[in-house]
């Protein structure tokens, strides 16, 4: 891996340029979202405490969705939120119930890999592969855990089947990955 990293910079001026351009473009769009994500973990701890009381109710609603699906789902969700709100107001201050509603929305932030004009067709195989490579090149360039690379990780996880990612990770570890990393 170290060899790959060291051999990376010299031949790839154009590649580096490409990478940068994309990041600048995408940063504009994703920055507020990242800020939201950063906010989440801080609040998430309090939310986890609140939701740990839920699982009994929550599992009931998710456990047998096929049986009494749509009608009961709404009811049980309403019950669970009510119950949680009651528990919160009992245990803590009134602010918590308000906080929970605010937290609930970012927790399941509905967002995925955007449509990419490089891959406008039905066949998205290369889209997934390219995002995977982009992530690992980004990590190679910026270092492990660079926040700029998170969005590529999100994209390839959204697009690639888990089985493929596992196989590619294995291949990278063995040094037999068939792509330009």
């Amino acid at each position: 891996m170290a060899e790959v990293d060291s051999s990376k910079p010299p031949p790839t001026l154009s590649e580096q340029y490409l990478l940068k351009e994309k990041e600048e473009k995408l940063d504009m769009g994703t920055k507020p979202a990242e800020e939201l994500e950063v906010k989440d973990p801080a609040n998430a701890t309090s939310e986890e405490v609140a939701t740990e009381e839920n699982p009994v109710v929550a599992n009931e609603s998710s456990g047998d969705p096929s049986d009494e699906a749509t009608s009961n789902a709404g009811e049980s969700v309403a019950e669970s939120t009510q119950a949680a709100a009651e528990e919160n107001s009992e245990t803590a201050e009134q602010d918590d119930s308000g906080d929970k509603e605010v937290e609930e929305t970012p927790e399941i932030k509905i967002e995925t890999a955007p449509a990419d004009f490089r891959f406008p067709t039905t066949n998205q195989t290369r889209h997934c592969f390219t995002r995977y490579i982009e992530y690992h090149r980004c990590v190679a360039a910026k270092g492990e855990g660079a926040p700029e690379c998170d969005k590529f990780a999100k994209y390839y996880r959204a697009l690639c089947p888990g089985e493929w990612v596992d196989r590619w990770n294995e291949q990278r570890e063995n040094g037999t990955f068939p792509g330009p990393l």
Partner: peptide, 13 residues
């Protein structure tokens, strides 16, 4: 809304 709670209920465990 229901989708959100479904997903988070399955994700949190």
């Amino acid at each position: 809304k229901d989708y959100g709670s479904r997903v988070s209920n399955q994700l949190i465990p």
